[in-house]
Design a protein around this nucleic acid. Structure first.
Lengths: 101, 101
DNA sequence: CCGTATCCGACCGGATACTG
DNA sequence: CAGTATCCGGTCGGATACGG
């Protein structure tokens, strides 16, 4: 729970679960409002926790993408349950896209 | 998710789920390290969200207790899943008692 | 393109004191 | 007993600039 509680963490996982492997720059755009500092911080943390994987391509310019590990995928089921509950509680209008803090 | 992300929130819910209705002072002792300010803040927030209920007895001295609503009880199943996952990931040694931030 | 390094202001949360 | 009010220091996170 400590892991998941950080800002943007759950939304970041959610985005990756929807799109699969995604590049750094795309994530920064997709998660509108996040700073590069925060994004890298969350990505490193989730990588340490074994929830996401980093893929590095030493091309020019370099390409880096991130996706969920198997461990990360296990979370999706639970997060899905939570989102379902949220929909029942707050109505269909509630979007999954929330910054957590 | 925003609701659950605040500090102590999940642990507070967890404690209430284990013990049922619990008085303010007991919670303060049980959740060792929490300040009265933080405790009341979380309690008020969870009450607003309809996750817990406040019971006030105008005795002298007054007695106030808190317990989960039906809505709150719905969360327990999901939290239980999450704790199970955490146990598989981090081993039996991991305790449920974590402060979230 | 994908970051790291540094600075800095805002806010959060603890400690303390006080009330019905 | 169960809080509220106030102050204040530490930390978190954004902005900015820079590097491989």
């Amino acid at each position: 729970m400590t892991v998941l509680s950080g800002p943007w963490t759950l939304y970041l996982i959610w985005v990756l679960s929807q799109q699969g492997a995604t590049r750094f720059g795309v994530l920064r755009q997709e998660i509108s409002g996040i700073s590069t500092k925060m994004l890298t911080e969350r990505l490193r943390m989730l990588e340490r926790e074994g929830i996401i994987q980093r893929h590095y391509q030493a091309t020019i310019p370099p390409q880096v993408s991130y996706d969920l590990t198997d461990k990360g995928a296990e979370l999706i089921a639970i997060l899905g349950d939570l989102y379902s509950l949220a929909e029942r509680w707050y109505g269909e209008s509630s979007e999954a896209a929330h910054c957590l803090n």
